[in-house]
Nucleic acid binder design. Sequence first.
DNA 1: CGCAGTATTGAAAACCCTTACATAATTCTG
DNA 2: CAGAATTATGTAAGGGTTTTCAATACTGCG
Lengths: 337, 337
Amino acid sequence: MSQYGNVEKKRVTIYSVAKEAGVSLATVSRVINESDVVKENTRKKVQEAIVKLGYKPNAVAQGLALKKTTSIALVVPDGSFNYIDKVINGLLDTAKIYKYNIILHTATAGINEMNEIIDNVVKSRADGLILYNDAFSAKEMEILNNFQIPTVYLGNKGEGDSACCVYIDYEKAVYELVDRYLNKGIDDIVIIDDRKNPTSIDLLIRGASKAFEEHGKTFGGFITIPEDVHNSYEFLSNYFAHNKHQLVITYRDSQAIAVINTCTENNIRIPDETEVVCIKDSRYTDMFRPRISSFIVPSYDLGALAMRIMTKLLSGDIVRDKEFKLNYVYKSKETTK
Amino acid sequence: MSQYGNVEKKRVTIYSVAKEAGVSLATVSRVINESDVVKENTRKKVQEAIVKLGYKPNAVAQGLALKKTTSIALVVPDGSFNYIDKVINGLLDTAKIYKYNIILHTATAGINEMNEIIDNVVKSRADGLILYNDAFSAKEMEILNNFQIPTVYLGNKGEGDSACCVYIDYEKAVYELVDRYLNKGIDDIVIIDDRKNPTSIDLLIRGASKAFEEHGKTFGGFITIPEDVHNSYEFLSNYFAHNKHQLVITYRDSQAIAVINTCTENNIRIPDETEVVCIKDSRYTDMFRPRISSFIVPSYDLGALAMRIMTKLLSGDIVRDKEFKLNYVYKSKETTK
DNA sequence: CGCAGTATTGAAAACCCTTACATAATTCTG
DNA sequence: CAGAATTATGTAAGGGTTTTCAATACTGCG
């Protein structure tokens, strides 16, 4: 079977173009790659032949000859698209500018899966790897470090110190938030951990702990949704029927919504009795009623920056800063006083 | 610069393995490709050499030799990830099973962009193309038809009759829905069109029109959000401050939420005075209060099926059915009586 | 007009695989 | 145990590019 369908059209290669234009294939190659040595006259002949035959360079052959594919592998956690859409948009837009293709991989947490993906990435000879890693554990990250490929960690710090990373400083965000509440004398603060974003939740807890420590207290307020619970909504509903807190911090919008709904159902008034803050802003935090207080984060820029750093890495530029923290803005809306 | 980083490690190729194992490269190739002609003894030697050297086949070279890349291009509308996440999940999971790589492209509506993407796809020599096309116009689709590559349309019908397509039959869904309301004597029905998913909205309107016609009436109830309006929320808010309808149908959850919020703000009681149905279900339709009545659609299966059809297409199997419609389930919740 | 020097072009190797065909090794048959 | 039939391996061409180095075509100058 031919490359495209059953119609056996003969392939148009650099040879066909060379023949059509009456030059050697080397010259055609030079025209394609915009080398400035080729004479204006021959360039025109070649260009015409290219148009006439509808020639499109074969990136596979180029990849083999150049030992680079101008494609980069993007690994994201399974089922994460709904909350990283803007990141991906930023990443893809930037990739387009630099003419990189993105090969998309999803990974469920797990070492086997991670190894499989790496095999795949190596096999595909992607020039680089961007890993959105708020759902992977240190163990999984370790696998990556053993394998040499320019890598940018996205959404969180990397483990090895060699790789670049781009992320929002959630630790500081939570620190500031909690500090503010502690100053107001509010210390019944909990963080919801649904075990789906371990590395990010770690950051949140670290931030809260730091604030508590500075106030001479110890932070212990995380509600961990047990692993065997499939419907976290039900779990939270049950929990908030029996417990009340002054401030509930969640990572994702869906968790904030679950908390707000369950509180409301249990006649806990928001924000009067319980305040809720969602760390990761989304389009829904503004559409939901009450509007959910959250941190506005530059998700698009996050993706765009990651990709830009990758291009720097690949062009051989020295990247001095390894760690890029992006700013957030806290936006108090209707779920906080 | 070497393929990976600055360390100029010498590449391990099929030659190195052959040398290490004391066989010819043809034999190594046979072992890799699990040909059954090679003797058990030599196979073992080769396998050992592969492990020892850490050899990983080069898909680029394979692609050149085999004239196929085992990768398929996925084109989705810009900024669509938040609402097609499950589709992509299904698609990627299936691709993984069949060992296909997915090269991701986003397209804003527009002919230039579409041409650029096609250039890119051809250049990359992807074996096939899957197009999520609920945001592209006929004009853009036409470009695709002029170019020979196995294509599966996802989320909507294709224009040409040659290509396969997988979609939810929204036309029928709306037809049944509207028919039910007309039978109850309710005919003040409107569809919100935000101009972002023209082809899908067309289906909705067609379904509604058909139902109206069968009842001897004409359907004219679409609220089109003007092109120059950037904040559709504000537009709807303004609209519903002055207008009231018995049934409002929206395509996406965000539109339904906007309608519900604006109605509520204008003291229009839902569902008593106005009922709202969201066609495309999402995780938020259940989390929002009131819970939004919607059509549950098998998004994951949609993606999975598209990919499976693609593998059939590529393996040269004859695909008899070109059009795959998936079933939906209407779920009446709290925004309808 | 002839030659040095420069601007263009071409030939061929390299990139890393697959596979048809040829050859070598093994097994089977009488 | 020879020769046929079969099985296992090797050789070499081909896939479509880039790029080095050599060859050729031009230019300007004396």
